[in-house]
């Protein structure tokens, strides 16, 4: 089989570009640890409270060290449970300072959901039986909408919350 000289040039250029992308991605993923979330940790979807992180009293935002936070959330159709505030009302908004490191931990009690803090790189599938977990540094100030971005039923578009990052 014969390749025209220019086709060889083109294929080397194209394959070289693809290889370059893979090297960049691979380096970041394996050496810097920026893999997409995957922890292969399982949980009983009908009894998520058995897991320490998802006990009702442990839901929501918690500062664990200076500038380090953990947020535990239980997703169900059509709600994100961030726990209760001091007045016993469900929390719909969490606030963290800019530059803080936040670990999001979330699982589902029923169907598949999404969890995206829109405008950041926090974007996870949430599946019954699995724990989704992603740690990130909140680099930018603003109000970010948390959306369920996987179809979970007919009120899917009414499943949301807010993350505010302040200066």
């Amino acid at each position: 089989m014969h390749l025209h000289k220019f086709e060889k040039v083109w294929l080397i250029f194209g394959m070289g570009s693809l290889a370059l992308f893979l090297v960049i991605l691979g380096f970041a993923a394996f050496w810097k640890g920026t893999h997409p979330q995957s922890h292969i940790e399982t949980i009983d979807p009908e009894n998520v409270e058995a897991h320490d992180s998802f006990k009702p009293e442990n839901l929501g935002l918690r500062e664990v060290a200076d500038g380090k936070y953990i947020v535990n959330i239980v997703a169900s159709a059509f709600n994100y449970d961030f726990g209760m505030d001091a007045d016993g009302k469900p929390v719909k908004k969490i606030r963290v300072p800019k530059g803080s490191t936040v670990l999001f931990q979330i699982t589902s009690k029923d169907v598949v959901h999404g969890f995206q803090v829109a405008g950041t790189n926090v974007n996870m599938m949430v599946e019954p039986g699995h724990v989704s977990r992603l740690e990130t540094e909140m680099k930018n100030v603003g109000e970010f909408t948390v959306v369920c971005n996987e179809y979970c039923g007919i009120a899917h578009h009414q499943m949301f919350a807010t993350v505010e990052v302040y200066e």
Partner: peptide
């Protein structure tokens, strides 16, 4: 399924590499 919780990231990456291979016939 890259953002799913239950799949080993190394295998995700292996399939990403294979995905990039399928670009080659399209370059051709």
């Amino acid at each position: 399924q890259l953002t799913e919780p239950g799949i080993d990231p190394t295998w995700k990456f292996i399939q990403v590499v294979l995905t990039f291979m399928v670009v080659i016939p399209t370059l051709m």
